[in-house]
């Protein structure tokens, strides 16, 4: 025991921080989700189901659609950076695609709110260029706006990881396919993407967790019903001080992200076992 003491002392501060700032609040929220005025039970979950089941489905759909679109754009950008032949386009793309990484979600919400509104910049441009008549302008401050904001913000992040993975592939595997006559698209889909897939999965998993936790964007763009879980949680706490239902919603979010993480872990462990 005495032998281990210095080591334990060294790790103690870090351990304490994890315990008090991470484990304790998490357990507190977990327990809180089952605490009602009538003692422990599933009352909060019943209430959550009655009030917010639609929002939960809405959240899943929005996040899933955003993740799919993010994956598609990231693969396209990463693929062009890896396989593209126009040097200038590659340099330009490499320089441009990272910008949104440095813009906070709240600012993205603000930018897109003024851009996507019925009388916003997007419609003004459409009207000015004669694409749409002033009577037919359309706002996208609903689920579409949220998806656009999420994709806008997450594509650079996933692309950053994915393009790195693609760039570090053995170039020979790409050239061997070219040598046998594979087109660029086939090389991307059949050679590059399968090898970079684990990294894409990491990027998407982290993105999904991020999107599940963003409050500012849905609050600014689409806070009407239906909305996403984070908005409901904020509403329960700010309007009613109802921590029970908020905790239940939080736990449901955790289960959703946990499921994604579990699929990812299972996949990586399978790959490792091979």
């Amino acid at each position: 025991m005495r032998r281990h003491l210095p080591g334990l002392l060294l790790v103690a501060p870090a351990l304490a921080i994890i315990l008090f700032l991470f484990v304790v609040p998490l357990v507190g929220a977990f327990v809180g989700a089952f605490q009602t005025n009538a003692g422990f039970g599933f009352g909060n979950f019943v209430k959550t189901y009655q009030l917010y089941s639609r929002d939960i489905v809405f959240t899943i759909l929005i996040v899933a659609l955003s993740a799919i679109l993010t994956a598609a754009f990231s693969v396209a950008i990463g693929g062009y950076l890896t396989l593209g032949s126009n040097r200038l386009a590659i340099v330009l793309l490499r320089w441009l695609y990272r910008w949104p990484l440095f813009i906070p979600f709240i600012v993205v919400g603000q930018i897109l709110r003024t851009f996507l509104a019925k009388n916003g910049l997007m419609n003004n441009i459409f009207v000015a260029s004669g694409v749409v008549s002033p009577l037919h302008t359309f706002g996208m401050l609903d689920w579409r706006g949220v998806v656009i904001a999420f994709v806008w913000k997450q594509v650079p992040f996933v692309t950053l990881l994915l393009a790195g993975a693609m760039a570090s592939l053995d170039r020979g595997t790409i050239e061997a396919a070219r040598n046998l006559g594979a087109s660029r698209l086939r090389i991307l889909i059949e050679i590059v993407l399968p090898q970079a897939a684990p990294t894409l999965m990491v990027g998407l998993t982290l993105s999904i967790v991020t999107m599940m936790s963003v409050l500012s964007v849905p609050l600014m763009i689409a806070s009407q019903s239906p909305t996403v879980i984070t908005v409901d949680m904020a509403f329960r706490i700010n309007a009613y001080g109802d921590y029970g239902v908020a905790n239940a919603l939080g736990l449901i979010s955790l289960v959703l992200t946990g499921t994604v993480a579990w699929f990812y872990l299972r996949q990586t462990m399978r790959e490792a076992a091979r």
């Binding site: 053995d170 595997t173 050239e175 040598n179 594979a182 090898q195």
Partner: peptide, 20 residues
């Protein structure tokens, strides 16, 4: 001509087999 239109096949130093 592109590499695949030359009737040649290249064996790479690293083999460059597709791991998947």
């Amino acid at each position: 001509q592109p590499p695949d239109k030359r009737g040649m096949a290249l064996v790479f130093q690293t083999y460059a087999l597709w791991p998947h």
